[in-house]
Amino acid sequence: MSARDHILEQIKINKPAELVLPETLSFESDFADLTETFTELLKTVYTEVVPVKNETELLQLLTARYEGVVNRATTIPSLLPWADFSLSVSDPHELETLELAVLKAEFGVAENGAIWISDAHLPHRVLPFITQNLALVIPAQNLVGNMHEAYKRLTDTTGWGCFISGPSKTADIEQSLVIGAHGSRSLVVYLLEE
């Protein structure tokens, strides 16, 4: 008998009587202002949330904030002339020297500051992790209250996707929080109004 069949057989013999799933598995949140909650929450994980009117203003803000930074890449077409690093590489290892990635993401969750990004928005999965610094851009109206609402939106997660909440961090040395473990050292979130 294969390991598979053996395991399934053992489970069949040993499992408890069948139960039904409870009805209440989803809870609604009632945040008065999603943007405010989202912004406050991300502040606690060292992430600034910046409202921005349109992509023209976004370009101005990025130019000012990341002045002097070389190896800038983006997935937002209107920002391509500003970027100096092309993402059309065949091997993701070539992204190693990337300093800043400005990436379009799909939506945010107010309760925990998590932002969903996936294959649908990325030429390389490793992009948000390998870059030294990360900026995510989401439409301002794309905020949901909590994770239950988030999964109502995520009927399909495509091949790969990730909730990102803040820069990479660790507290493995005496519980002292250090920002910048293996992934990005900083995160800024732009909420695009148009």
């Binding site: 992790f129 995520l154 790969w160 909730f163 990479s168």
Partner: peptide, 28 residues
């Protein structure tokens, strides 16, 4: 998949008090 909504709200809060881990990566 929708059950992840329950577990991801519970997991990091119970573990370290964070509202969610920095990365919750969904491989398919």
């Amino acid at each position: 998949q929708e059950h992840l909504g329950v577990f991801l709200r519970l997991l990091a809060r119970s573990a370290t008090g964070q509202p969610i881990t920095t990365y919750s990566s969904h491989f398919k």
